[in-house]
């Protein structure tokens, strides 16, 4: 177990180092002159030079990378160009907002998706299976912005049940008006539900074909027990990995969903940082997302290991 953890953590470390390098290359070395972009028409030679000095852009790239990564290790992500204040002050509130949304979708979506998938996988080719499969297929086919806009059209513009925009007023939290969470969470859930449901169904169908399930049936156990004790634990093992992969994928979905509904989370901040060329903020957010992704996979691996008696790391 210890060996396994060390192996995984060192892999994550190396991965994040590589990712941070890549982010740095894409954001700082390639894009031309940040100072030029920030000043736009007001750019005079003097002001450009001053700004470059202020942003340390006049130093060589590798020095800037090392000082950036050094800061990251100490928890200092630098200052936002646009908001002129430390990134570590801006980001936490946004993380909290996105987390609320993501957890909301996960907690509501995953159990339903797993239940629907199991139900369909146990009895393939029944009417219920067909319905669930069709919903799943449409679900994975609709991009978040299509689902989002359609929900908006129906629930907000036509029925007026929910507010069309999910912005949060200054000084309040998402819980001040929890109804604003409904549409973004539903949208996020759409893809998540479809994906996990399809996977669960496929895994259950596969496990149903195994000799040990046959053994369980031929022991004369009632179907309910066969499914709960013999099928589910084995079908859930690969599903756990899928859920973790999806968590990372959901981070991508957040960018879209938060922009569709103007919800002030990480995704919206990220897109804004791209639009305003707020490079330090963009770097910090990208690294944060990569790290979340990597660690959610680690958690999945650990859960897999804990639940699978066949794997015991020496």
């Amino acid at each position: 177990m210890l060996r396994f953890l060390i192996a995984r953590l060192s892999t994550i470390g190396v991965t994040l180092l590589v990712v941070s390098g890549a982010i740095f290359v894409v954001t700082e070395i390639l894009p031309g002159d940040v100072a030029q972009m920030m000043l736009k028409k007001e750019a005079t030679e003097e002001r450009l030079a001053a700004l470059r000095a202020e942003l340390n852009l006049d130093r060589p790239a590798h020095v800037r990378y090392l000082s950036w990564i050094g800061g990251v290790v100490r928890g200092d992500f630098g200052d936002s160009y646009v908001q002129k204040r430390p990134i570590s002050e801006i980001v936490p509130r946004r993380i909290a907002h996105s987390l609320v949304l993501a957890l909301f979708a996960l907690v509501l979506g995953v159990p339903v998706a797993v239940a629907a998938g199991v139900w369909a996988g146990v009895r393939p080719d029944t009417l219920w299976d067909r319905v669930v499969s069709t919903v799943g297929l449409v679900g994975i086919s609709l991009p978040e912005f299509v689902t989002g806009v359609m929900l908006m059209l129906v629930l907000a513009s036509t029925l007026h049940w929910l507010p069309p925009s999910s912005h949060i007023l200054a000084g309040t939290t998402p819980w001040t008006r929890p109804e604003i969470l409904v549409m973004p969470a539903l949208t996020l859930m759409g893809v998540l539900f479809a994906y996990i449901m399809r996977m669960t169904r496929a895994n259950v169908m596969e496990v149903m074909q195994t000799p040990y399930v046959r053994t369980a049936v031929l022991k004369g156990l009632p179907m309910r027990r066969v499914i709960l004790r013999h099928v589910l634990p084995n079908a859930m093992l690969p599903t756990i990995t899928i859920i973790a992969t999806n968590f990372g994928w959901m981070l991508g979905g957040l960018i879209i969903v938060e922009n569709v509904f103007s919800y002030p989370g990480l995704g919206q901040l990220l897109l804004r940082s791209i639009q305003t060329r707020d490079v330090p903020l963009l770097e910090a957010l990208s690294l944060l997302i990569a790290a979340t992704y990597a660690f959610s996979n680690l958690v999945a691996d650990l859960a897999y290991t804990a639940l699978n008696p066949r794997i015991r790391y020496a």
Binding site: V19, V26, P31, G32, G248
Partner: peptide, 26 residues
């Protein structure tokens, strides 16, 4: 495979966004 894992530890949409935002108008 480590390099592949690294490439995958990044949501596709985010990578596409970064590339387009940073290189698209150059």
């Amino acid at each position: 495979m480590r390099v592949m894992d690294g490439l995958m530890s990044f949501p596709s949409l985010l990578l596409a966004l970064l590339v387009m935002a940073m290189l698209g108008n150059r």
